[in-house]
Design a protein around this nucleic acid. Structure first.
Length: 484
DNA sequence: ATGTAC
Protein backbone atom coordinates (compact mmCIF):
# COMPACT_ATOMS: atom_id res chain seq x y z
CA UNK A 1 0.00 0.00 0.00
CA UNK A 2 1.55 3.27 -1.04
CA UNK A 3 0.37 6.85 -0.64
CA UNK A 4 2.62 9.65 -1.79
CA UNK A 5 3.03 12.26 0.96
CA UNK A 6 4.19 15.86 0.54
CA UNK A 7 4.88 18.49 3.19
CA UNK A 8 1.53 20.08 2.30
CA UNK A 9 -0.21 16.83 3.33
CA UNK A 10 1.20 17.03 6.85
CA UNK A 11 -0.85 18.61 9.60
CA UNK A 12 1.33 20.92 11.63
CA UNK A 13 0.25 20.29 15.24
CA UNK A 14 2.87 22.58 16.69
CA UNK A 15 5.94 24.53 15.62
CA UNK A 16 8.07 21.35 15.67
CA UNK A 17 5.45 18.60 15.33
CA UNK A 18 3.79 17.28 12.18
CA UNK A 19 1.13 14.61 11.83
CA UNK A 20 0.01 12.19 9.17
CA UNK A 21 -3.55 11.48 10.29
CA UNK A 22 -4.76 7.95 10.85
CA UNK A 23 -7.25 8.43 7.99
CA UNK A 24 -4.46 8.83 5.42
CA UNK A 25 -4.27 5.11 4.76
CA UNK A 26 -6.93 2.53 5.62
CA UNK A 27 -4.43 0.26 7.37
CA UNK A 28 -3.08 2.86 9.81
CA UNK A 29 -4.08 2.19 13.44
CA UNK A 30 -2.68 5.38 14.98
CA UNK A 31 -1.38 8.65 13.54
CA UNK A 32 2.25 8.99 12.48
CA UNK A 33 4.10 11.97 13.91
CA UNK A 34 7.34 13.67 12.96
CA UNK A 35 9.23 16.03 15.24
CA UNK A 36 10.96 18.58 13.02
CA UNK A 37 11.43 22.30 12.68
CA UNK A 38 10.48 24.01 9.41
CA UNK A 39 14.17 23.84 8.49
CA UNK A 40 14.29 20.03 8.91
CA UNK A 41 10.91 18.82 7.68
CA UNK A 42 11.89 18.98 4.01
CA UNK A 43 14.63 16.36 4.66
CA UNK A 44 11.91 13.82 5.47
CA UNK A 45 10.57 14.01 1.92
CA UNK A 46 13.87 12.87 0.40
CA UNK A 47 13.68 9.14 1.23
CA UNK A 48 11.21 6.49 2.43
CA UNK A 49 11.05 7.69 6.06
CA UNK A 50 7.43 8.86 5.85
CA UNK A 51 6.06 5.71 4.24
CA UNK A 52 8.09 3.64 6.70
CA UNK A 53 6.60 5.37 9.75
CA UNK A 54 3.12 4.99 8.23
CA UNK A 55 3.88 1.27 7.88
CA UNK A 56 4.87 1.14 11.55
CA UNK A 57 1.55 2.76 12.49
CA UNK A 58 -0.28 -0.28 11.04
CA UNK A 59 1.30 -2.81 13.41
CA UNK A 60 -1.00 -4.58 15.89
CA UNK A 61 -1.16 -3.19 19.41
CA UNK A 62 0.64 0.08 18.65
CA UNK A 63 -0.27 2.81 21.15
CA UNK A 64 -0.86 6.53 20.66
CA UNK A 65 1.33 7.27 17.61
CA UNK A 66 4.21 6.04 15.49
CA UNK A 67 6.89 8.66 16.06
CA UNK A 68 9.98 9.91 14.22
CA UNK A 69 12.57 12.16 15.82
CA UNK A 70 14.16 15.13 13.98
CA UNK A 71 17.31 13.11 13.21
CA UNK A 72 15.15 10.48 11.53
CA UNK A 73 15.79 8.88 8.16
CA UNK A 74 15.15 5.68 6.25
CA UNK A 75 16.20 2.43 7.91
CA UNK A 76 15.57 -1.30 7.73
CA UNK A 77 11.75 -1.54 7.97
CA UNK A 78 11.40 1.09 10.69
CA UNK A 79 12.97 4.50 10.19
CA UNK A 80 16.02 5.32 12.25
CA UNK A 81 14.91 7.90 14.81
CA UNK A 82 11.73 5.89 15.35
CA UNK A 83 9.77 5.36 18.56
CA UNK A 84 6.91 2.87 18.72
CA UNK A 85 5.22 1.50 21.85
CA UNK A 86 3.09 -1.62 21.96
CA UNK A 87 0.54 -3.10 24.32
CA UNK A 88 2.10 -6.20 25.90
CA UNK A 89 -0.93 -8.37 25.15
CA UNK A 90 -2.03 -7.12 21.74
CA UNK A 91 1.31 -5.88 20.42
CA UNK A 92 4.34 -7.14 18.55
CA UNK A 93 8.10 -6.92 18.94
CA UNK A 94 10.15 -6.27 15.81
CA UNK A 95 13.94 -6.54 15.44
CA UNK A 96 13.72 -3.90 12.70
CA UNK A 97 12.30 -1.52 15.31
CA UNK A 98 15.44 -1.90 17.38
CA UNK A 99 18.18 -2.14 14.81
CA UNK A 100 20.87 -4.65 13.95
CA UNK A 101 23.24 -3.09 16.47
CA UNK A 102 21.31 -3.98 19.60
CA UNK A 103 22.00 -1.45 22.37
CA UNK A 104 24.12 0.73 20.23
CA UNK A 105 24.54 3.61 22.62
CA UNK A 106 26.60 6.41 24.05
CA UNK A 107 28.37 7.12 27.29
CA UNK A 108 29.97 10.29 28.51
CA UNK A 109 32.87 10.44 30.94
CA UNK A 110 34.23 13.59 32.53
CA UNK A 111 37.63 14.51 33.90
CA UNK A 112 38.72 17.06 36.54
CA UNK A 113 40.87 18.91 33.97
CA UNK A 114 40.25 22.10 32.04
CA UNK A 115 41.06 21.97 28.34
CA UNK A 116 43.17 25.13 28.45
CA UNK A 117 45.50 23.43 30.96
CA UNK A 118 46.06 20.15 29.10
CA UNK A 119 45.47 21.04 25.45
CA UNK A 120 49.06 20.15 24.55
CA UNK A 121 48.39 16.60 25.81
CA UNK A 122 45.38 15.98 23.55
CA UNK A 123 47.25 14.50 20.56
CA UNK A 124 49.17 12.14 22.83
CA UNK A 125 45.97 11.18 24.68
CA UNK A 126 44.19 10.57 21.39
CA UNK A 127 47.06 8.44 20.20
CA UNK A 128 47.24 6.43 23.41
CA UNK A 129 43.51 5.77 23.35
CA UNK A 130 43.88 4.59 19.76
CA UNK A 131 46.51 2.15 21.01
CA UNK A 132 44.40 0.91 23.92
CA UNK A 133 41.00 0.54 22.21
CA UNK A 134 40.83 -2.15 19.50
CA UNK A 135 38.75 -1.02 16.52
CA UNK A 136 37.78 -1.85 12.97
CA UNK A 137 35.34 -4.07 11.12
CA UNK A 138 35.24 -7.62 12.47
CA UNK A 139 38.09 -6.93 14.81
CA UNK A 140 38.47 -8.59 18.18
CA UNK A 141 40.53 -7.58 21.16
CA UNK A 142 42.82 -9.16 23.75
CA UNK A 143 39.98 -10.37 25.99
CA UNK A 144 38.85 -13.87 25.00
CA UNK A 145 35.74 -15.10 26.76
CA UNK A 146 34.88 -18.76 27.33
CA UNK A 147 31.25 -19.76 26.74
CA UNK A 148 30.72 -19.72 30.48
CA UNK A 149 32.15 -16.19 30.76
CA UNK A 150 30.15 -14.86 27.84
CA UNK A 151 26.99 -16.29 29.40
CA UNK A 152 27.83 -14.34 32.56
CA UNK A 153 28.21 -11.12 30.53
CA UNK A 154 24.90 -11.77 28.75
CA UNK A 155 22.98 -12.55 31.94
CA UNK A 156 24.49 -10.05 34.34
CA UNK A 157 25.68 -7.12 32.26
CA UNK A 158 27.85 -4.64 34.12
CA UNK A 159 27.53 -6.55 37.39
CA UNK A 160 29.96 -8.92 35.70
CA UNK A 161 32.28 -6.03 34.82
CA UNK A 162 32.28 -4.80 38.44
CA UNK A 163 33.12 -8.29 39.68
CA UNK A 164 35.93 -8.70 37.13
CA UNK A 165 37.52 -5.33 37.93
CA UNK A 166 36.50 -3.52 34.71
CA UNK A 167 34.03 -1.24 36.50
CA UNK A 168 33.51 0.60 39.75
CA UNK A 169 30.22 0.15 41.52
CA UNK A 170 29.76 3.90 40.93
CA UNK A 171 29.92 3.26 37.16
CA UNK A 172 27.18 0.70 37.34
CA UNK A 173 24.69 2.99 39.06
CA UNK A 174 25.32 5.77 36.54
CA UNK A 175 23.99 3.76 33.60
CA UNK A 176 20.57 3.35 32.06
CA UNK A 177 19.02 0.27 33.70
CA UNK A 178 22.16 0.00 35.86
CA UNK A 179 23.88 -1.71 32.93
CA UNK A 180 21.71 -4.80 33.13
CA UNK A 181 18.40 -5.74 31.53
CA UNK A 182 16.95 -8.31 33.94
CA UNK A 183 14.94 -10.11 31.24
CA UNK A 184 18.12 -11.40 29.59
CA UNK A 185 18.44 -15.11 28.89
CA UNK A 186 21.68 -16.30 27.29
CA UNK A 187 20.14 -19.63 26.32
CA UNK A 188 18.18 -17.85 23.55
CA UNK A 189 21.37 -16.39 22.04
CA UNK A 190 22.76 -18.68 19.33
CA UNK A 191 26.16 -20.34 19.59
CA UNK A 192 27.13 -18.46 16.44
CA UNK A 193 26.33 -15.11 18.05
CA UNK A 194 28.39 -16.05 21.12
CA UNK A 195 31.24 -17.16 18.89
CA UNK A 196 31.21 -13.82 17.06
CA UNK A 197 31.25 -11.97 20.37
CA UNK A 198 33.78 -14.05 22.25
CA UNK A 199 36.74 -11.73 21.53
CA UNK A 200 34.83 -8.48 20.88
CA UNK A 201 34.31 -7.20 24.42
CA UNK A 202 36.10 -3.86 24.78
CA UNK A 203 36.24 -3.21 21.02
CA UNK A 204 34.91 -0.21 19.14
CA UNK A 205 33.90 -1.61 15.75
CA UNK A 206 33.55 0.59 12.67
CA UNK A 207 31.12 2.93 10.92
CA UNK A 208 29.93 5.77 13.12
CA UNK A 209 31.42 4.29 16.29
CA UNK A 210 34.01 6.42 18.01
CA UNK A 211 35.82 7.55 21.12
CA UNK A 212 36.04 11.34 21.28
CA UNK A 213 37.94 13.65 23.60
CA UNK A 214 36.17 16.97 23.85
CA UNK A 215 35.58 19.99 26.02
CA UNK A 216 32.52 21.68 27.47
CA UNK A 217 32.10 24.78 25.32
CA UNK A 218 28.80 26.12 26.55
CA UNK A 219 26.43 25.51 29.44
CA UNK A 220 22.73 26.22 28.86
CA UNK A 221 21.33 25.00 32.16
CA UNK A 222 23.51 25.75 35.19
CA UNK A 223 21.71 23.64 37.79
CA UNK A 224 21.46 20.55 35.60
CA UNK A 225 25.10 20.90 34.50
CA UNK A 226 26.18 21.10 38.12
CA UNK A 227 24.10 18.03 38.99
CA UNK A 228 25.75 16.19 36.08
CA UNK A 229 29.24 17.23 37.26
CA UNK A 230 29.95 19.48 34.25
CA UNK A 231 31.75 22.84 34.16
CA UNK A 232 32.95 25.13 31.37
CA UNK A 233 36.06 24.09 29.43
CA UNK A 234 36.10 20.70 31.17
CA UNK A 235 37.71 17.83 29.28
CA UNK A 236 35.21 15.04 28.61
CA UNK A 237 35.33 11.72 26.76
CA UNK A 238 32.43 10.28 24.77
CA UNK A 239 32.18 6.64 23.66
CA UNK A 240 29.76 5.43 20.96
CA UNK A 241 29.49 1.73 20.19
CA UNK A 242 27.19 -1.27 20.59
CA UNK A 243 27.00 -5.04 20.70
CA UNK A 244 29.27 -5.71 17.69
CA UNK A 245 28.92 -9.00 15.83
CA UNK A 246 27.07 -10.63 18.72
CA UNK A 247 24.08 -8.28 18.60
CA UNK A 248 24.10 -8.29 14.82
CA UNK A 249 23.85 -12.09 14.82
CA UNK A 250 20.98 -12.04 17.35
CA UNK A 251 19.07 -9.60 15.11
CA UNK A 252 19.80 -11.71 12.02
CA UNK A 253 18.76 -14.97 13.70
CA UNK A 254 15.37 -13.70 14.88
CA UNK A 255 14.57 -11.68 11.76
CA UNK A 256 15.00 -14.80 9.68
CA UNK A 257 12.80 -16.79 12.01
CA UNK A 258 10.09 -14.12 12.17
CA UNK A 259 9.93 -13.61 8.40
CA UNK A 260 9.43 -17.34 7.94
CA UNK A 261 6.75 -17.61 10.61
CA UNK A 262 4.66 -14.51 9.84
CA UNK A 263 1.76 -16.62 8.49
CA UNK A 264 1.87 -18.74 11.63
CA UNK A 265 1.58 -15.59 13.76
CA UNK A 266 -1.34 -14.48 11.56
CA UNK A 267 0.50 -11.29 10.57
CA UNK A 268 0.08 -9.61 7.21
CA UNK A 269 2.54 -6.73 6.98
CA UNK A 270 2.92 -3.89 4.46
CA UNK A 271 6.69 -4.54 4.38
CA UNK A 272 8.53 -7.78 5.19
CA UNK A 273 11.28 -5.75 6.80
CA UNK A 274 8.81 -5.09 9.64
CA UNK A 275 8.98 -8.82 10.49
CA UNK A 276 7.87 -9.26 14.08
CA UNK A 277 6.28 -11.66 16.54
CA UNK A 278 3.50 -11.17 19.08
CA UNK A 279 4.98 -10.03 22.39
CA UNK A 280 3.07 -12.75 24.19
CA UNK A 281 4.16 -15.55 21.83
CA UNK A 282 6.96 -17.97 22.67
CA UNK A 283 9.11 -16.58 19.83
CA UNK A 284 8.43 -12.97 20.86
CA UNK A 285 9.44 -13.73 24.45
CA UNK A 286 12.60 -15.50 23.29
CA UNK A 287 13.63 -12.59 21.10
CA UNK A 288 13.07 -10.10 23.94
CA UNK A 289 15.26 -12.24 26.20
CA UNK A 290 17.98 -12.63 23.56
CA UNK A 291 17.84 -8.91 22.78
CA UNK A 292 18.21 -8.09 26.49
CA UNK A 293 21.25 -10.40 26.62
CA UNK A 294 22.83 -8.64 23.63
CA UNK A 295 22.05 -5.31 25.29
CA UNK A 296 23.93 -6.46 28.38
CA UNK A 297 26.89 -7.35 26.17
CA UNK A 298 26.84 -3.81 24.72
CA UNK A 299 26.70 -2.21 28.18
CA UNK A 300 29.77 -4.29 29.12
CA UNK A 301 31.48 -3.41 25.86
CA UNK A 302 31.22 0.31 26.53
CA UNK A 303 32.34 -0.32 30.12
CA UNK A 304 35.47 -2.28 29.14
CA UNK A 305 36.32 0.45 26.61
CA UNK A 306 36.02 2.94 29.47
CA UNK A 307 38.53 0.84 31.35
CA UNK A 308 40.90 1.02 28.38
CA UNK A 309 40.33 4.78 28.21
CA UNK A 310 41.16 5.10 31.92
CA UNK A 311 44.42 3.20 31.34
CA UNK A 312 45.31 5.54 28.50
CA UNK A 313 44.60 8.47 30.81
CA UNK A 314 46.92 7.00 33.45
CA UNK A 315 49.68 6.37 30.92
CA UNK A 316 49.63 9.88 29.49
CA UNK A 317 48.53 12.07 32.41
CA UNK A 318 50.39 10.12 35.11
CA UNK A 319 47.19 10.52 37.14
CA UNK A 320 44.84 7.81 38.44
CA UNK A 321 42.30 6.48 35.92
CA UNK A 322 39.47 6.91 38.41
CA UNK A 323 39.73 10.66 37.77
CA UNK A 324 37.79 9.85 34.62
CA UNK A 325 34.27 9.46 35.97
CA UNK A 326 31.22 8.12 34.21
CA UNK A 327 28.45 10.70 33.78
CA UNK A 328 25.88 8.39 32.18
CA UNK A 329 25.38 5.65 29.58
CA UNK A 330 22.35 5.50 27.26
CA UNK A 331 21.00 2.90 24.85
CA UNK A 332 19.61 4.25 21.57
CA UNK A 333 18.79 0.96 19.79
CA UNK A 334 16.62 -1.06 22.14
CA UNK A 335 13.15 -2.17 23.19
CA UNK A 336 12.22 -1.87 26.84
CA UNK A 337 9.38 -2.85 29.10
CA UNK A 338 8.14 0.42 30.61
CA UNK A 339 5.06 1.87 32.27
CA UNK A 340 3.47 4.88 30.58
CA UNK A 341 0.19 6.70 30.74
CA UNK A 342 -2.02 6.02 27.72
CA UNK A 343 -5.51 7.58 27.63
CA UNK A 344 -5.15 8.55 31.30
CA UNK A 345 -4.48 4.95 32.25
CA UNK A 346 -1.01 3.73 33.21
CA UNK A 347 -0.04 0.54 31.45
CA UNK A 348 2.92 -1.67 30.68
CA UNK A 349 4.30 -1.34 27.16
CA UNK A 350 7.19 -2.52 25.06
CA UNK A 351 8.78 0.70 23.81
CA UNK A 352 10.93 0.33 20.68
CA UNK A 353 13.59 3.02 20.31
CA UNK A 354 15.63 2.74 17.12
CA UNK A 355 18.02 5.63 16.89
CA UNK A 356 16.10 7.27 19.69
CA UNK A 357 17.13 7.87 23.29
CA UNK A 358 15.17 7.38 26.48
CA UNK A 359 14.72 10.80 28.11
CA UNK A 360 12.79 10.37 31.35
CA UNK A 361 11.66 13.56 33.02
CA UNK A 362 12.62 14.86 36.48
CA UNK A 363 11.67 12.68 39.43
CA UNK A 364 11.43 9.38 37.55
CA UNK A 365 12.53 6.53 39.86
CA UNK A 366 14.75 4.99 37.12
CA UNK A 367 17.03 8.04 37.08
CA UNK A 368 20.08 7.81 39.37
CA UNK A 369 19.36 9.70 42.56
CA UNK A 370 22.04 12.33 41.99
CA UNK A 371 20.43 13.34 38.67
CA UNK A 372 16.78 12.72 39.51
CA UNK A 373 15.82 16.32 40.16
CA UNK A 374 17.41 17.50 36.89
CA UNK A 375 15.94 14.78 34.65
CA UNK A 376 17.67 11.85 32.96
CA UNK A 377 20.97 12.75 31.29
CA UNK A 378 20.61 12.39 27.51
CA UNK A 379 23.73 12.15 25.33
CA UNK A 380 23.53 13.32 21.72
CA UNK A 381 26.65 12.95 19.59
CA UNK A 382 26.85 15.22 16.57
CA UNK A 383 28.65 14.31 13.40
CA UNK A 384 32.43 14.06 13.54
CA UNK A 385 34.16 17.35 14.17
CA UNK A 386 31.00 19.34 14.86
CA UNK A 387 29.69 19.14 18.40
CA UNK A 388 27.72 17.00 20.82
CA UNK A 389 25.02 17.84 23.33
CA UNK A 390 24.09 16.86 26.83
CA UNK A 391 20.36 17.22 27.46
CA UNK A 392 18.06 16.45 30.37
CA UNK A 393 14.80 14.56 29.92
CA UNK A 394 11.72 16.78 30.26
CA UNK A 395 8.39 16.00 31.89
CA UNK A 396 6.35 16.97 28.81
CA UNK A 397 8.18 14.32 26.77
CA UNK A 398 6.75 11.56 28.94
CA UNK A 399 3.24 11.95 27.51
CA UNK A 400 4.27 13.05 24.04
CA UNK A 401 6.82 10.42 23.07
CA UNK A 402 6.99 7.82 25.85
CA UNK A 403 9.90 9.71 27.41
CA UNK A 404 12.07 9.70 24.28
CA UNK A 405 14.17 12.05 22.22
CA UNK A 406 16.61 12.05 19.29
CA UNK A 407 19.93 10.16 19.25
CA UNK A 408 22.31 12.16 17.06
CA UNK A 409 22.63 14.33 14.00
CA UNK A 410 21.01 11.82 11.65
CA UNK A 411 22.41 10.83 8.31
CA UNK A 412 21.19 12.75 5.25
CA UNK A 413 23.57 11.28 2.67
CA UNK A 414 23.96 7.54 2.09
CA UNK A 415 27.29 5.94 2.95
CA UNK A 416 27.85 5.30 -0.74
CA UNK A 417 27.14 8.90 -1.72
CA UNK A 418 29.41 10.17 1.05
CA UNK A 419 32.27 7.94 -0.12
CA UNK A 420 31.77 9.23 -3.63
CA UNK A 421 31.60 12.92 -2.72
CA UNK A 422 33.99 13.36 0.18
CA UNK A 423 37.77 13.58 -0.08
CA UNK A 424 38.80 11.97 3.22
CA UNK A 425 42.44 13.12 3.12
CA UNK A 426 41.28 16.69 2.71
CA UNK A 427 38.68 16.26 5.47
CA UNK A 428 41.33 15.03 7.88
CA UNK A 429 43.46 18.09 7.15
CA UNK A 430 40.48 20.41 7.54
CA UNK A 431 39.68 18.92 10.93
CA UNK A 432 43.32 19.22 11.97
CA UNK A 433 43.28 22.91 11.06
CA UNK A 434 40.28 23.28 13.37
CA UNK A 435 42.35 21.77 16.20
CA UNK A 436 40.75 18.33 16.00
CA UNK A 437 43.12 15.38 15.69
CA UNK A 438 41.50 12.39 14.02
CA UNK A 439 42.80 8.84 14.12
CA UNK A 440 40.75 7.07 11.46
CA UNK A 441 40.57 3.31 11.00
CA UNK A 442 40.23 3.82 7.25
CA UNK A 443 39.87 6.73 4.81
CA UNK A 444 36.74 5.18 3.33
CA UNK A 445 35.20 5.03 6.80
CA UNK A 446 36.21 8.63 7.42
CA UNK A 447 34.49 9.81 4.23
CA UNK A 448 31.27 8.03 5.23
CA UNK A 449 31.27 9.93 8.48
CA UNK A 450 31.96 13.37 7.03
CA UNK A 451 29.87 16.16 8.59
CA UNK A 452 28.46 16.89 5.11
CA UNK A 453 26.78 13.46 5.22
CA UNK A 454 24.78 14.42 8.32
CA UNK A 455 22.08 16.88 9.34
CA UNK A 456 23.05 19.81 11.52
CA UNK A 457 22.94 18.48 15.09
CA UNK A 458 22.16 21.96 16.43
CA UNK A 459 18.92 22.06 14.39
CA UNK A 460 18.05 18.56 15.59
CA UNK A 461 18.66 19.38 19.25
CA UNK A 462 16.87 22.74 19.01
CA UNK A 463 13.84 20.84 17.70
CA UNK A 464 13.61 18.43 20.64
CA UNK A 465 14.27 21.30 23.06
CA UNK A 466 11.54 23.44 21.49
CA UNK A 467 9.15 20.47 21.40
CA UNK A 468 9.66 19.89 25.11
CA UNK A 469 11.10 16.38 24.77
CA UNK A 470 14.40 17.29 26.48
CA UNK A 471 16.22 20.43 27.62
CA UNK A 472 19.64 21.58 26.51
CA UNK A 473 22.25 21.35 29.28
CA UNK A 474 25.65 21.63 27.60
CA UNK A 475 27.41 21.80 24.24
CA UNK A 476 30.62 19.80 23.78
CA UNK A 477 33.25 20.47 21.10
CA UNK A 478 35.64 17.76 19.92
CA UNK A 479 39.42 17.91 20.26
CA UNK A 480 40.52 14.37 19.46
CA UNK A 481 38.59 11.64 17.64
CA UNK A 482 39.26 7.91 17.39
CA UNK A 483 37.16 6.45 14.57
CA UNK A 484 36.47 2.77 14.06
C1' DA B 1 25.67 -1.20 12.08
C1' DT B 2 27.73 -6.08 10.34
C1' DG B 3 33.05 -11.91 9.13
C1' DT B 4 28.21 -6.37 3.02
C1' DA B 5 25.74 -12.98 0.70
C1' DC B 6 21.32 -18.91 2.41
Amino acid sequence: MSVEIHVSDLIQLDRCLWEIPVSTRPDMRVPARIYASEALIEDFMQDRTVSQIMNVSTLPGIEKAAIVMPDGHEGYGFPIGGVAAFDINEGVVSPGGIGYDINCGVRLMFTPEKYENIRNKIPELTHEMTRMVPRGMGRGGPIKLSTDQINQVLMRGVEWAVEQGYAFEEDRIRMESNGKLPDADASFVSEQAKKRGHDQLGTLGAGNHFVEIGRVEQIFHTDAARAFGLFEDQVVIMIHTGSRGLGHQVATDYLRMFVKKLPEYGLNLPDRELACAPINSEDGVRYLKAMAAAANFAFCNRQVISWEVRKAWENVMKSPGDQVELLYDVAHNIAKRERHRVNSEEKELIVHRKGATRAFGPGHPEIPERYRKAGQPVLIPGSMGTGSFVLAGAESGMNQAFGSTCHGAGRKMSRRAAKREVDAQKLKKELASMGISVEAGSFAGLAEEAPAAYKDVELVVDTVHEAGLASKVALLRPAGVIKG
